[in-house]
Design a binder for these strands. Structure first.
Lengths: 265, 265
DNA sequence: AGACGGGTTCCATACTATGGAACACAGGTC
DNA sequence: GACCTGTGTTCCATAGTATGGAACCCGTCT
């Protein structure tokens, strides 16, 4: 697989461990996890520190270095978020065949920031950038339910006659969303269009995004519960990738390998 | 200096070139800049790609990989910004001996996000988090002057009798700020307190932060022009670190080495 | 003092990275 | 079509670099 790059492989493995760690790992942690000789680890880590790829905090633990900060400072955080979310979305797309959406709150609106298209011919079209009333979309309901978006005022827009009619009813539904862990819409934005969405938590534990799928109600309805649970699990996984310590949902039956970009082979 | 880490040094040099580049460099660019053998560069770059430290875009050019995105997605962008700015601020602190401030706009207010303390006993105290009226501070004036902050309405707060009295006068001063490149305050916030500040541009070219120094007027007044020019130069350097392409101010007489964390030794 | 954990430095050795050359591939040019 | 030229990857014998065991250093606990 790799040829003539042993030392770089080792260095990259160490880097990866540090970058993806929840707590800055100590020298010994890294030695244990990699199985490297202490001398080798020391040499490599010092080289990485010399090159600003790592730095040691006051306790001597290793943290990502100035080079990562420099990257973060000159790149759009939304872009980084999307790139982190893409593998999860891609897998959801493969698994369900439906359109997958990722959205963040912006002011009092919801904006789609990424999408993976349906593999069906009949599927939700590309929504990125399109403005929809949050109370008509599963993504928006998730945001409302977790205080990622301020609740709207009462004359609610009603694009269809299934749209939730007033803030009082909306609040009742939001309670259900919190209880189930996911939100649904069914023909509330457009005749025949259904959606399911779950919250994404950032490092601080706050819900700052929602991950959802959408498609025709006849396909989504029958498996709404399964899709909801699937989304909850995958959102939790994404949250974890973003550093949230929310208890990772336990064991998902079919958990795919190779999607998390962690400790390399 | 380095022992037994030749290949890691080379890998890190390549990484650094890619991360700090303005445009994603092509394979040949990297070969030329590093002077490595093409075979070696190829091997190393492929290893870095395999480990998600780099990725190749559609043109085959190299960009920072998912590992950088993962870091950026799980860290506060402000924090990354501050960490990038710290070396510049530290040098300004050493050079001038005065308190150095870094601020960003937040709503219609200015918040200090980092500070390096004066080496004098009499100096500005720590302002991080403290709210001051923008029109009384050099940092705020810089923001107003470059549309980083919406102009205030007319009954302006007047903490001292030297405070600029109304929006009309403020506008006149802002024109001067744009012309000079830096802003000053002199006893406008507090008797005897003076400050100088210059704009920091982000990758998109917008002013989104200000870098300033503050201290007693008797020390700052006499060298205001020099300090202003110094700040303009250093702010430009910081802007450049953040990826702004604004023409870097040409040759600053005493330019220190070792502060930019670029292409390692 | 003595023992221990955590980390760095040393050094002979073995194995890994190296780079020149050959190769592969994609455009250009005639 | 034949022939370059530019880009990048693969091969392989060799040199030289990374390796890891052991010695060492240092702070802390007993």
């Amino acid at each position: 697989m790799s040829n003539g790059t042993q030392s770089i492989d080792r260095a990259a493995e160490l880097l990866s461990l540090v970058v993806h760690a929840d707590e800055p790992p100590a020298f010994s942690d890294l030695v244990d996890e990699t199985g490297l000789a202490r001398s080798t680890a020391s040499r490599v880590l010092n080289a990485l520190e010399r090159h600003h790829l790592l730095e040691r905090d006051n306790d001597g633990a290793f943290r990502p270095g100035p080079m990562f900060a420099a990257y973060a400072a000159r790149h759009d955080p939304i872009d980084a978020f999307v790139r982190t979310a893409k593998p999860v979305m891609a897998w959801l797309g493969e698994r369900t065949g439906e359109t997958v959406n990722l959205a963040v709150p912006h002011g009092s609106a919801v904006v789609q920031v990424a999408q993976v298209d349906s593999t069906y011919l009949l599927g939700a079209v590309n929504w990125v950038g399109v403005d929809v009333p949050p109370h008509c979309s599963a993504l928006g309901k998730v945001m409302y339910a977790h205080d990622a978006l301020p609740l709207p005022d009462d004359p609610l827009e009603r694009p269809t006659d299934r749209t939730v009619a007033d803030v009082a009813s909306l609040k009742r539904e939001l309670a259900r969303v919190r209880r189930l862990g996911y939100a649904e819409t069914n023909g509330e934005l457009e005749e025949g269009l259904a959606g399911v969405a779950a919250p994404v938590r950032f490092r601080d534990g706050q819900v700052r995004a929602a991950l959802g799928i959408s498609g025709p109600d006849f396909r989504l309805d029958e498996s709404a519960k399964d899709l909801g649970d699937l989304l909850v699990a995958e959102s939790a996984r994404l949250s974890h990738l973003l550093g949230s310590r929310q208890p990772q949902l336990s064991n998902q039956a079919t958990h795919q390998p190779g999607t998390t970009q962690a400790t390399s082979a």
